[in-house]
């Protein structure tokens, strides 16, 4: 029988640094591979609409006539499918999360 088995760990922890950090005062570090949010370099886009068709959540809308590309960040599940399929490689997966918003669109 062992009593107070965790007592050693908790007393040790008292003198150590906290395991969590003070977000957002301390910024979060993203890794190189982190899938954060989708960005478009609109100069290269040919508005082919492939990304729109590939997107599993229908987050992207491409209008060929008006040369318009929009994304609804809250629908996007950051699967990176659109980035993989874009023929012009003009979509990028940024490694920072999309910023907070106060309204849905």
């Amino acid at each position: 029988m062992a009593f107070l088995k965790l007592a050693g760990t908790v007393t040790k922890r008292m003198g150590m640094k906290s395991a969590c950090y003070m977000y957002p005062v301390v910024a979060r570090e993203f890794t190189k591979t982190t899938r954060g949010h989708v960005e478009l370099d609109s100069a290269d886009c040919i508005y082919c609409g492939l990304c729109q068709r590939k997107c599993p959540t229908k987050a992207i809308e491409v209008n060929r006539q008006e040369k318009n590309w929009t994304i609804q960040p809250l629908r996007c599940i950051v699967c990176s499918g659109c980035v993989d399929v874009c023929p012009k490689k003009c979509l990028r997966m940024e490694n920072t999360y999309s910023s907070s918003v106060t309204s849905k669109f």
Binding site: V10, T11, R13, M14, M16, S18, A19, C20, M22
Partner: peptide, 10 residues
């Protein structure tokens, strides 16, 4: 505070 420190939190 002490409890948080023991649990590795702020």
């Amino acid at each position: 505070i002490i409890t948080a420190r023991m649990q590795g939190r702020y």
